[in-house]
């Protein structure tokens, strides 16, 4: 057992680039969406709030895999242009996790005490100034641990691009498995795959822990 590491592991790692690319594409999109949608949901304008709520509920209410299939197979049929499966997978990841992360952003903005806003108003700050100088710096600290957790979830989510035939690590492992069908090699292949994902996630785990610790340190919560 575990004797084929020199052939199996490099083959699985051949999909590392795709996994990391999907993760980065998804993360950039997700966090951009999270900030915009999260702030839009705290807006005073009912239309802005409504649009953001519909978007968030739609993407949280349907499953990630369903969205991925939609963007990969159904969406191109509707649109006049074609879209690569990589873009489709990244879009699904970004929109889905963006919707979840926007809740973290919204929660953090709402968690900033009301007195802070009132103080900003009494100092004659404009709305923009209040947001930029008072609310966001405090909310940002609160949302970091949640966003870190979200990144871990996103990394796990990238394995779903296997279903739309992107050659990520999971996809490569399944190709290996179909040509090495003995029980021992199958267990070996998926053990390596799990370990690689674990090693990829570890930095994110430590980063999140650190952010959690930092978020609760040295700040008065009164």
């Amino acid at each position: 057992m575990f004797t084929n590491i020199d052939t199996f592991l490099p083959y699985i790692l051949g999909g590392l680039t795709t996994t990391v690319q999907a993760f980065l594409f998804g993360a950039v999109l997700a966090y951009s969406i999270a900030i915009v949608a999260g702030l839009a949901r705290t807006s005073r304008l009912a239309i802005v709030r409504g649009v953001a709520t519909v978007f968030v509920e739609l993407f949280r209410g349907t499953s990630l895999l369903v969205q991925m299939f939609f963007f990969a197979f159904a969406f191109p049929a509707l649109m006049p242009f074609t879209m690569s499966t990589f873009i489709a997978g990244g879009l699904a990841l970004g929109l889905n996790y963006g919707a979840y992360a926007s809740e973290v952003v919204r929660g953090a903005v709402l968690a900033v005490p009301k007195g802070q806003k009132e103080a900003a108003i009494s100092l004659n700050m404009s709305k923009f100034q209040t947001m930029r100088r008072v609310v966001l710096p405090q909310a940002f600290r609160l949302m970091l641990p949640g966003l870190g957790n979200n990144a871990i979830e996103l990394l796990k989510g990238t394995s779903l691009v296997y279903f739309i035939s992107l050659a990520d690590m999971t996809f490569n492992a399944n190709i290996l498995r179909s040509s090495n069908t003995s029980l021992v090699s199958q267990v070996e292949i998926y053990t390596y795959l799990l370990l690689v994902y674990f090693v990829l996630a570890l930095p994110l785990v430590f980063l999140t822990r650190w952010l959690e610790k930092r978020a609760s340190k040295g700040v008065s919560t009164a």
Binding site: K156, T158, L193, L202
Partner: peptide
């Protein structure tokens, strides 16, 4: 278990 993808765990 928490940080590895459920899909891969399913296959395993």
């Amino acid at each position: 278990i928490r940080v590895t993808p459920p899909l891969v765990q399913l296959f395993f």
